[in-house]
Nucleic acid binder design. Structure first.
Length: 234
DNA sequence: GCGACAG
DNA sequence: ATCTTGTCGC
């Protein structure tokens, strides 16, 4: 299904589609070398249906920025926990198609398989494009775990019963952990290792961190800030 | 019925 | 996610 058709789906239909897609998920060792890595993120104005998507590509593992791509899209699919992909993937896909050369792997702001149906946004985007993906979330959606030690790179497994679905990673001391899970075409261990290599002193790994800065910048540049502007007319 | 709930 | 300055803690 073309992602541009997502906005016409009902929540029930979106869930049915996730159950269809999950059968194609591939969690296994990535054997091709990683020479480039990218981060993707979305920004939007509180009371608007416009999404600002951005992708930043880096050379790996030195993390020097190579290029970026953005896209401004409209959406009508609301944010529903567990169905985030149906709201953000269309915009991210547009930004992706604006990239001249694709990265070897992509990090998304959200879950991979650490999801009730194993269909977090990173997994969804990986299945759509075929690119290996990793989910790096700032908060937990699914999976039980114990708090990792307050030490850099301390890890704690996240489970769905006996199934390992993610890793809570302390990316920075005295900060809440981040939640890592493979999206598609890569395994759990490699996902965590890659993210560790992308930590540069901040809680958020560089790919996603830079993508976040980029999308916020283009949102402001486009003046999509009705809250402030409306105040001028009161 | 109650608690949880990516961005 | 976004709205927002200063402020408590390491």
């Amino acid at each position: 299904m073309d992602p541009h058709g997502y906005e016409h789906l009902t929540p029930a239909e979106a869930i049915a589609y996730q159950n269809q897609l999950r059968q194609k998920i591939n969690i296994c060792e990535l054997t091709t070398p990683i020479k480039t890595i990218a981060g993707a993120d979305i920004s939007f104005d509180k009371n608007s249906d416009i999404l600002y998507a951005g992708i930043v590509v880096f050379r790996y593992p030195d993390m020097q920025v190579i290029t970026t791509a953005t896209a401004i899209s409209h959406t009508s699919f609301p944010y529903i926990s567990g169905l985030l992909a149906f709201r953000e993937v269309p915009a991210l896909f547009n930004a992706w198609n604006n990239l001249y050369s694709k990265p070897d792997i992509l990090v998304l702001d959200g879950q991979g398989i650490a999801h009730e149906r194993r269909m977090g946004i990173a997994t969804h985007f990986g299945l759509l494009t075929g690119v290996p993906t990793i989910g790096s979330a700032k908060s937990r959606l699914y999976g039980k775990y114990i708090e990792p030690a307050d030490k850099l790179f301390a890890e704690s497994p996240m489970y769905d019963n006996n199934e390992l679905v993610g890793i809570a990673l302390r990316s920075k001391p005295r900060c809440k952990p981040i939640y890592i899970s493979p999206g598609h075409n890569i395994n759990m261990q490699q996902s965590v290792d890659v993210i560790k290599n992308c930590i540069r002193g901040y809680r958020i790994p560089e790919p996603t961190r830079q993508a976040h800065l980029l999308v916020n910048k283009i949102r402001i540049e486009n003046g999509d800030n009705r809250t402030k502007q409306m105040g001028l007319f009161d």
